[in-house]
Amino acid sequence: MTAKTGYIDFSNLEDEPLDPAVEALISKGQRTEAERRLPAKERKAKAKERAKAEARKGARALYDLDPALIAAVKRVAGKTCTTASQVAAVAIIRFLADVEAGKVDLRDYRTPSDSPRYEFNIDLEKVKNDAV
């Protein structure tokens, strides 16, 4: 769209940015078109990749963790020849079971938070000490 002044010189629009929605739909269409031209085998691989990505939706979470914890999970995964995601899943499953069973009470580790979004922080140092 344009400001309400002057005539439009349609011969001189090449460098003008596109509406973001139009750009997104065109790039999606071009990708689809490019995929259509691939050999059948590659087309199948692409479709499989897309299906995998679709299936992964909702199965990923991003948490802020101490790098030492991330390294520890990796270490265990390496030792047991499995993936870090699965080791993290085992740790979470066991922890949640302990919470359910009353073996762990997070209220013991809470400290007041300055954040307007959360009332408490968890004192991770205390958790570590207790775990040891």
Partner: peptide
């Protein structure tokens, strides 16, 4: 359809920022 996509690209080539979301 490739035709719809091709015509959208053609429209964009001619009218650039004047093309509204389809």
């Amino acid at each position: 359809t490739g035709e719809s996509q091709g015509q959208l690209e053609n429209l964009v080539k001619n009218f650039r920022r004047f093309v509204l979301p389809p």
